[in-house]
Each structure stands twice: as structure tokens, then as C-alpha cells.
Amino acid sequence: MKLKLHVWRQKNKSAKGAMVTYDADNISPNMSFLEMLDVVNEGLSNTGEAPIAFDHDCREGICGSCSLMVNGVAHGPQDATTTCQLHMRSFQDGEELYIEPWRAKGFPVLRDLIVDRSAFDRIIQAGGFISVNTGAAQDANAIPVRKLDADEAFNASACIGCGACVAACKNASAMLFVSAKVGQLSLLPQGQPERQERVLNMMSQMQEEGFGNCTNQYECEAVCPKQISSDYIARLNREFISATLAHPNTRK
């Protein structure tokens, strides 16, 4: 396969970036998208040009490191798939591809296609955890959990924190991410003691990081590689409203 790539190149956080065009030759349809970039990078290295920087780690769709906007769609055209699991057979020979980093105020570009996603870490630190006393772990089945709740909590916990929801959202909102984390913990008994302050603190942290507001367009769930449903956003809204009304002063 032969492709024409338009890639965002930016030296560092403060440098001004631009789209640069590259030809990608000798691409096998069986390569993953990241392997295709590896091939392009090898070519760039051979000519002495700096390779295209992009985030990647496990390359098996579970770590949430890879993060590319391909033709305006987060993680590319294939549903429920991270960029690393996307294969070149999803594209046509001779196709032109626009490869861009996640765009959000909360995700500043560090270099080329790499963005700083530590805003998500700070949102988790604001409340996306449970506090437990140390000691021996108790028996896994000691606390009864309704099957439906366990399933829903599990579906929410599938979130890998890649940030595709923010990238796809027209408002660069992180509501799907926050809703998955809040939903997961509020559905389980272990999440109850900190339930109210969790949602209030995580939401105010999200706002502080400069993410936008949800306008119910559901672009996020369409690109989520783990298919987190926007129903969790409704649940988050419900949690936030009840925490605000019932426990207005429960905040750090």
C-alpha cells in the first residue's frame, strides 16, 4: 500500500506546530497503524529527520497510551478499537490520512502527536479512589453485590483513560471519563462512604483542568475503544445533582 500522510509536527510544548506531508510506501495491509508509523519513522531516521513522536505502550488495546486522531476520528475509523489495534486494511491504497494529536486545553501537546494527559491523573486524585485500611484483603465474596450492579460497574471499569472521549467531544469535555470512574465506584458497596465528595471533587477538578461541558452529542461513546455508554453521563449528572442538593458542603 501507498499512503499520503498529513501529520502534526511540533518540536515541544511552546513551539508552533504545523501539518507536514509525508509519503508512506511499502505499507502492508496487515500492519497495525502504529507499525505503519514505525516504518515511516525508520525512513525519516535514515534521512536524518526527527521521527514522528507518538505515545504507545502495550500495543494490544489495554493500556490507553495510544492516542491518534485519524481523519478527525479518535482512534481511527474502526469501532471499539484503539489506534494500536487498528490495521492498515481499514484503509484504501493511495488514501490521504490526517493524523493529529488529541486537541483540548486540558491535554497540551508535548511533542508531535504526544499530549500531556496528566489532567486525568489529577481528576482521579481528586476522588477516583476508595480509602481502605491496610491489612489482609477480605474474602472476595464477603460483600454481596447485585449482579446487575456488578455488571454495570464492570462495564464502567473497562475505561482505559485514553482520552478519546475528550478528543472526540465537540466541547473537549471529559464527562465520559469522569462518568465511568464515578459510575464504577458509586455502583459498588466499597464506593459508598466517599460517594458524594467523590463526584463533587472530580467534577470541580475536571472544570479546573479546562475541559468543556457535555452538550449530549454522544461523539464520545461513538469513539470510545471500550464502548463506555453515555448512559454513565446521565448517572454522573444524577450523582452530581443529588450530592449537591443533599450534601452541598461535602468537599475537600
Binding site: H6, W8, M19, M69, N71, G72, V73, Y98, E100, R103, A104, K105, G106, V109, A168, K170, N171, A172, S173, G210, F211, G212, N213, T215, Q217, Y218, E219, A222, V223
Partner: peptide
């Protein structure tokens, strides 16, 4: 809400796309 949303993405995408909105 609109002003906050505009501010949340200072740099627009070169290739704009919509999946289901």
C-alpha cells in the same frame, strides 16, 4: 456553557469530522 466549551479547545482540528452528533 458555550464560552467555556469554546475555550476548552483552543487549537481546532485540521480535519474536522463528526461520527454521530
Amino acid at each position: 456553557v458555550t464560552l467555556a466549551n469554546r475555550a476548552a479547545r483552543p487549537e481546532p482540528y485540521a480535519f474536522n469530522n463528526t461520527v454521530q452528533a
